[in-house]
Amino acid sequence: MAVKKDYKDQVLVEKLRDRKYYIPDSNPEFIKEVEKIGLTPAHMCYQCGTCTGSCPSAPRSSYRIRLFMRKAILGLEDEILTDPDLWLCTTCYSCTDRCPRDLAPTDVIMAMRNLAARRDIVPRNFLKTTQLIYNTGHGVPNNDANRAARLKLGLEADPETTHKYPEFLVGIRKLLDHYGLKEKADRILAEGE
């Protein structure tokens, strides 16, 4: 456990905060959970940095996929799941393609996003996509301007999807409700307002 400093000055408390890594701060189960969801043996990472070197997000941000791999192995669950950088992976899979240990760092990130979502940590745009799919079947639904354009092309105003056959939405909603996803999206989005 980190040394607690009861200094009067809160600024100094933060400035001099104990930054050591302590075993009790880590959750050894975390990496196992990540591997179960991500379907990749993440604990085999040997920290070569091929992933970060391949990453389109790394040069323009503080996002370091290698560090996420390291922290996952060390079980630094809280640090990972509350880090906004977790959401900067474009899932381009370049790291996965090149990883010499044959791991899928991209899927490790996806798994950790899933675990963050269990704690209700999800960026709003992700939740809005969920709501749209629940309501329309589409993450990017049709609109009137597009309907007009479609008609001009000789297509029907609505495509042969849930748009044209909304009766299929019943099944889709059952699937989403099975996981309580719509409720979760509504709740988190409402809390944020």
Partner: peptide
């Protein structure tokens, strides 16, 4: 850091070596 990939400058034929300095991060 292990080299992630190498790209060639089509004009100079110089090479861009992409990697991470893992010690610097």
């Amino acid at each position: 850091g292990r080299v992630a990939n190498i790209l060639e400058d089509p004009v100079t034929k110089n090479l861009h070596v992409n990697a991470e300095d893992t010690l610097l991060g």
